[in-house]
């Protein structure tokens, strides 16, 4: 479980997040929807511990960040590192031994090529593969469906369902509501840093 209590974040006088209270339960998939600048990425960065904030973020395992797989909107890659080395780097970081990488290459990526030469979608798939192989307890996926082809979107949806079955917490942001409605159990709408509405799965059709 992840509990976000009275979370606020400001950059100078600009209040990006205002008094956010959210609970994320195990075995559930959550969507965060909001227009550009609504504070989705900042919320994710606060949960990940990449930003200082006011308020509290609690999890059953601490530090939360050591059990969190974070997929950034635009994953960063070194210029001369191969796909397999990227995966190894991230797995080493979490002390997760990596065996038989080829058989776990779910997106069939050219792992022996430099990751920086991958297309946008391939980069996202590589970053996702790496955080999945880290075997995290929590997953935050910032715009995971952006730039990814339809076939990979289907695989991605299946992966998210599988993570739910494994009792993981998955938090996703997306502008594509249909992909969220296919995968999420609950969607939080964010506007100007404030949660304005929470929608349960049976209410998605009303949105």
């Amino acid at each position: 479980m992840i509990k976000v209590k009275n979370l606020s974040k400001s950059y100078g006088s600009n209040n990006v997040l205002k008094d956010i209270n959210l609970d994320f339960l195990n075995g559930k998939v959550y969507g965060i929807v909001g227009e550009n600048g609504a504070g989705k990425t900042t919320l994710f960065r606060c949960i990940a511990g990449l930003e200082d904030y006011d308020g509290e973020i609690e999890a059953e395992v601490t530090p939360l960040k050591n059990h969190l797989g974070l997929l950034l909107t635009e994953p960063f890659f070194f210029s001369k590192i191969t796909g397999s080395e990227y995966i190894r780097l991230l797995c080493n970081a979490r002390n997760t031994p990596i065996k038989d990488m080829e058989s776990r290459n779910i997106f069939d990526l050219p792992l022996n090529q430099y990751a920086s030469t991958y297309s946008t979608g391939m980069k996202k798939k590589l970053a996702l593969t790496a955080i999945l192989l880290q075997e995290n307890k929590y997953y935050i996926l910032d715009e995971p469906f952006n730039g990814v082809d339809i076939q990979s979107n289907i695989i991605l949806t299946e992966i998210i369902h599988k993570l739910r079955e494994l009792n993981k917490i998955v938090i996703i942001s997306s502008h594509i509501f249909s992909t969220l409605s296919d995968t999420c159990d609950e969607i939080h709408l964010l506007r100007k840093g404030e949660p304005i509405k929470t929608v349960q799965k049976n209410e998605f059709k009303d949105l």
């Binding site: 990940a48 511990g49 990449l50 960040k65 050591n66 974070l70 950034l72 994953p75 960063f76 070194f78 780097l89 991230l90 970081a93 979490r94 002390n95």
Partner: peptide, 11 residues
Amino acid sequence: PENEYFVWSYA
């Protein structure tokens, strides 16, 4: 310096 993600990732 490397991107903060590659420091943050370390447990």
